[in-house]
Each structure stands twice: as C-alpha cells, then as structure tokens.
C-alpha cells in the first residue's frame, strides 16, 4: 500500500499535498496496490474529496494536538501508523514540513529515502527514483534497496491528476506522544501566494538599479497575478525582503512561468529557477548568460519593456 502524508496549515490542506496524492496514486497503480492518505489533526476540507486526486482511502488521526506541527511528534505518529497499516511506499510533499519529517519517518521504518524526487520511480527492475541534485544543475537516479521506500516529491514537478472519485474516510485512534515544543507565534506574509506554491513568478535583479524602481515589476506581477522574487544581490542589499531571494542559497522554485528582469543569470541564480517550465528574460545586455537558459528573451531597457508587457497583458485580458 502507498501511504501519502497530507500536510496542513491552519486547518487547510496544503496545495503540495494534492500533488503528492496524485503522485502516490500513480505509483500505487504502477505497483497494483491502493493509494491511502494520512491526515493528522483537524482540517476544514472534506476528506472524502481527496478521492479526486487519487486517494482510495483517507486515514484520519483526529487529534487537535496535531494541528500544530512538531517534527518529532508528527514523525512518530506517521511511522507508527505506517507500520500498523502495512505501508510499503510512503510519499511526502518536499515542502517545509515534508522535509522536516520524511527522513525521520524513514529512519523509524528502517527505510531508504529519496528526497526531492522529480519523476515517477522506475519499478520494473528494482525501485529507482530520479531526483534533482547539485541544486538543480543535474539529476541522479537512486535505487532504494529496503523493503519500505520513502519519497518526497518536489513541488510542481508532477502536477495533479483529477477524477470524480470519492475516498472512504477511516478515523484512526493513535497514541500521540506529548509535545515539548510550544508554538508562540505565527507570522504570515499577507495577501501573497508563497513563492514555492506560485505558478507565475516575476523576479528582479540589480538591473532595476534600486528599490525605488520596483514599481514596474510590481505592476507586471499584479497584471499577471504573479508572485514576486529577486536575485541574491538584491536581497543582500535589502532592496527586497530575504524571503524573495531565489537561487542556490535561497528558495528553489519551479513555477510554470518565470520572468527575470535585469538579472544576468549567474550559475547560482539559475540553480534556483532552472526547473521553471518557461523562462522569459528581459535584459538590456544581449550577452547576459541568462539568455542561454531562457525560452523567450527581450533585449531592451526594462523600464520601457516591462510597462509595455504589462499593458499587453492587460489588453489581452480585457479582450478575453
């Protein structure tokens, strides 16, 4: 049985978990077994709906203590549940909480783990999982040789498969170890899609010359409904907040569209964004290395090109 961990935040199922269910369900089909989801805590979502993304069953540990995330406690509950249900493959989203517990769960099950997978495992001979390595500069195929396998799947690398199926929901009573971690505050950036979940991203670099010039970029992002990001020099100079820094030592993202404005495309920056499906580069220097990694390029002054692009997008939206 393939068991998929459902991550939640403030009683809402995380977007990455729907993708994890579809990924796990596809593996279950490949292996001729069932796909079962595991949710800890209480959520507002209707659990039977998880069938849509491919879960045959949803196991629900309905304990309010589990609404706040404690890696040690969650990993223990997941591992105990996986053992009692006889799971042979465990799937996690490779988001922040998934990263925090998947390796601990693997240890508790004596299982081999591949984190940051980017494709379905090959299961015809052995069990081989492909993941991104060297911060997106390469892929590695890794064989897991233990009876139980654990995988965390990179966000936005598989997508979702939707049907009109309905899952059966099973309430589970599991002993929950007491937590010695006290969450004292949560601070959310208001009104923005988290970068790791964004499908459209507009990003700026030093070419924009200063924080006071960010308006053209913000207008474009608003017209597209995109999230905003920046290069490392920009966040280091405090032109933009640190949480917007994408790159090798910042956030690694894989949106459908990444628009880079005034970013030269240093190898460290590319490592954070080269899994984007489509890359548009706007730079006045036609020799900028980023053009080699781009799908579409515009050689021109950002302060002219970007407002023109914004206008073209608004025009196309009003015609639609």
């Amino acid at each position: 049985m393939v068991l998929i961990y459902i991550d939640q935040d403030e009683q809402e199922i995380k977007k990455a978990s729907f993708e994890a269910i579809s990924y796990g369900a596809t593996i279950a089909k490949q292996l001729g077994t069932t796909a079962e989801a595991l949710l800890l805590g209480t959520v507002k979502n209707n659990l039977a709906d998880l069938g849509k993304w491919g879960a045959n069953k949803v196991h629900h540990v309905n304990n309010i203590v589990l609404n706040s995330f404690d890696a040690r406690v969650n990993a223990t509950v997941v591992a105990e549940t996986a053992k009692s249900l006889g799971a042979t493959v465990l799937i996690f989203a490779h988001n922040l909480n998934g990263r925090a517990i998947a390796p601990a769960v693997a240890v508790k099950l004596g299982a081999g783990i591949v984190t940051g997978a980017c494709a379905l495992p090959k299961t015809d001979a052995g069990f081989v999982v492909t993941k991104t390595v060297f911060s997106g500069k390469a892929f590695a195929s890794i064989e897991i040789s233990t009876p139980i396998k654990v995988i965390s799947i990179n966000q936005n690398s598989f997508g979702t498969v939707i049907s009109d199926a309905i899952a059966t929901v099973h309430e589970l009573a599991v002993a929950v170890p007491s937590s010695t971690l006290k969450i004292t505050s949560v601070h959310k950036i208001q009104g923005e899609v988290p970068l790791t979940e964004a499908s459209l991203v507009v990003s700026g670099g030093r070419g924009l010359k200063g924080p006071e010039h960010w308006g053209v970029l913000l207008d474009l992002a608003k017209a597209l409904g995109a999230s905003t990001a920046c290069s490392r020099p920009v966040s280091d100079a405090d032109w933009r907040p640190h949480h917007e820094h994408v790159g090798q030592t910042g956030i690694q993202i894989a949106p459908n569209l990444y628009i880079a404005i005034g970013i030269s495309g240093a190898i460290q920056h590319l490592a954070g964004v080269n899994r984007s499906k489509t890359i548009v580069v706007i730079n006045k220097d036609g020799e900028a290395p980023f053009f080699k990694a781009a799908d579409y390029g515009v050689v021109g002054d950002a302060f002219e090109v970007v407002p023109a692009l914004t206008a073209a997008i608004l025009k196309s939206k009003s015609n639609a």
């Binding site: 693997a106 004596g110 299982a111 081999g112 783990i113 591949v114 081989v128 492909t130 390595v133 997106g136 500069k137 390469a138 892929f139 590695a140 195929s141 890794i142 064989e143 897991i144 040789s145 233990t146 080269n274 580069v281 053009f291 080699k292 990694a293 781009a294 799908d295 579409y296 390029g297 515009v298 050689v299 021109g300 002054d301 002219e304 090109v305 023109a308 692009l309 206008a311 073209a312 025009k315 196309s316």
Partner: peptide
C-alpha cells in the same frame, strides 16, 4: 546502505532562446 546512486544526468539543453522585438510585447 539503504540507497545507492545508479547514475547522474545533466538536464537537456534548452533548444535556444526565441528573441522578441522589444516594441512588440503583444
């Protein structure tokens, strides 16, 4: 060991950038 690396691969090269006239954002 619970895992071992079978092989590495480099991402496929981009087929080449399509340049768009800066005066034609449509």
């Amino acid at each position: 060991a619970t895992t071992h690396i079978k092989n590495f691969e480099l991402p496929p090269a981009k087929s080449g950038v399509k340049l768009i006239d800066p005066d034609n954002m449509d």
